[in-house]
């Protein structure tokens, strides 16, 4: 399973990566903002994208919109992982085509299972559950 994590905070990149890599065969690639995320979604072909909302250059909502507008990336499931905790923000994220909305703080060790549950609920078949 290849996860593309778009997150501008280095500490949180590290914590999420540590949690996700606890699963066997899980690989994490990092993007530091929305624009980098768009480029890496095309070049890295991830199985799932974890997307922060408040990021420099291009925020998570705009990034998701562009991912869904591009035939090359539209089928990659997107899950928001964000400190933007309000319900209207969650509704906005889901309306942009994300399959899930996870709020910070999160437990790094629970994160892989939360990702798998959301993928399963959305009908995606993860390449490997580790």
């Amino acid at each position: 399973m290849k996860v593309l994590l778009a997150e501008d905070e280095e500490d949180i990149q590290r914590l999420a990566t540590l949690g996700l890599r606890k699963r066997k065969d899980w690989q994490v690639v990092l993007a530091a903002d929305g624009e980098e995320c768009l480029a890496m979604a095309r070049s890295e072909h991830p199985d799932v994208i974890l997307l922060d909302v408040m990021m420099p250059n291009l925020d998570g909502f705009a990034t998701c919109e562009q991912l869904k507008a591009d035939a090359a990336t539209r089928d990659i499931p997107v899950i928001f992982l964000t400190a933007s905790a309000q319900e209207r923000e969650e509704q906005r994220g889901l309306a942009k085509g994300a399959i899930g909305y996870l709020r910070k703080p999160f437990d790094p060790l629970q994160l892989p299972q939360q990702v798998l549950d959301l993928l399963a609920r959305a009908g995606n078949n993860p390449a490997s559950s580790g």
Partner: peptide, 18 residues
């Protein structure tokens, strides 16, 4: 404030969880 507090809390709590 809620957003800005959540970000460092994620680092602290995440580290403790690990």
């Amino acid at each position: 404030a809620s957003h800005e507090l959540r970000t460092p809390m994620t680092s602290i709590k995440g580290s403790l969880d690990l």
